[in-house]
């Protein structure tokens, strides 16, 4: 096991001289390159923080972060930089599948294992994919809504950008979750993940419908915007507010402050990526595809870190 680790470290740093023989230095730094597609989103900021926190527990790991600022070609260039810097492992959270599939494949050809986080690439030329399933989370949320509202009620759905896969999946998963019940989506609008837009749409919903039982925001800021609109109309007590993502400073905070009733975590997979990386370094077999479960945070469970759902 140790031999494999030294071998890997050795073949990625051939300039090291005494490669393969010096097994008495397990503390030799292993460099992991992390290519983040866009640090402009708090969720991705959290992903990097999770990776950093998990890596900090292993002093032999050194993680180098790069931010492609939502630019596919820049991300491609950064992956190539990591390959020529001969990092020991690459974690990529790609912006887009098509243009980044080949750069990742070339990294694999260069002998660098690649962990793909959150968004998929085409084909299977990577070591391991780790991601959550928006559809599953939407579904779990829908089932929770059915249970909480006793199978009937008026729901406002404030959707994430409907041209994005997460927005579509959180919608279709929810529809599956509430299928067969008497839950009615009386008003739905695309708030494009933006809190001010969510608030505006919720104001329209409030002036159109006198009875709203629950608001489902595709992200926590959306649900929070809806809460502010309802509070402004004096109706926040009659309505339940539900969101997704459960970032510590957003959704989890809103639940502990009594603003949202529940939030479902969309895990970043940062910690799991480091776990998987360590397994790869130890030459253990890792699954090709890891789907992360979600956690539900409500008033009761928010203090104890939420409740894990399968």
């Amino acid at each position: 096991m140790l031999g494999a680790f030294v071998f890997l470290a050795g073949c990625s740093k051939p300039t090291g001289g005494n490669s393969g023989t010096n097994s008495s230095t397990p503390q030799k730094k292993i460099t992991i390159g992390m290519s983040q597609c866009n640090l402009g989103e708090p969720w991705r900021e959290q992903m990097n923080a999770d990776i950093q926190a998990a890596a900090a527990k292993h002093p032999e790991l050194k993680v180098v972060f790069k931010d492609a600022q939502n630019d596919t070609l820049q991300q491609r260039a950064q992956i190539e930089e990591f390959v020529s810097a001969k990092v020991d492992l690459l974690i990529v959270s790609p912006k887009e599948a098509q243009p980044l599939t080949e750069p990742v494949a070339r990294a694999m050809d260069a002998g660098i294992p690649v962990i793909v986080l959150d968004r998929r690439l085409l084909g299977d030329k990577y070591t391991c994919f780790i991601g959550a399933d928006n559809k599953k989370i939407g579904n779990a949320l829908g089932e929770w809504v059915v249970k909480t509202l006793d199978g009937k009620g008026n729901v406002v759905e404030l959707m994430g950008l409907q041209t994005s896969a997460p927005g579509q999946d959180r919608h279709s998963g929810f529809l599956e979750g509430i299928a067969g019940s008497d839950i009615k989506i009386v008003f739905s609008a695309d708030m494009k993940w933006l809190e001010p837009d969510a608030r505006k749409e919720m104001e329209s919903a409030l002036s159109r419908f006198d009875k709203i039982d629950l608001v489902y925001g595709h992200n926590d800021p959306g649900a929070h915007g809806a809460y502010l609109a309802a509070k402004s109309a004096g109706r926040e007590k009659q309505i339940k507010f539900v969101g997704i993502d459960a970032l510590p400073q957003e959704g989890v905070g809103y639940v502990s402050q009594g603003i949202l009733d529940v939030t479902f975590q969309y895990p970043t997979g940062g910690a799991e990526a480091i776990d998987t990386a360590l397994k790869i370094f130890r030459d253990e077999k890792v699954p090709k595809d890891i789907t992360l479960g979600t956690r539900r945070f409500d008033k009761a469970s928010v203090k104890t870190g939420g409740e894990a759902l399968p």
Binding site: L39, G40, P42, E45, P221, P248, Q249, E250, G253, Q257
Partner: peptide, 10 residues
């Protein structure tokens, strides 16, 4: 710092 400055303080 790239994060929203909200009432949740780290």
């Amino acid at each position: 710092g790239g994060m929203k400055i909200s009432t949740a303080i780290l």
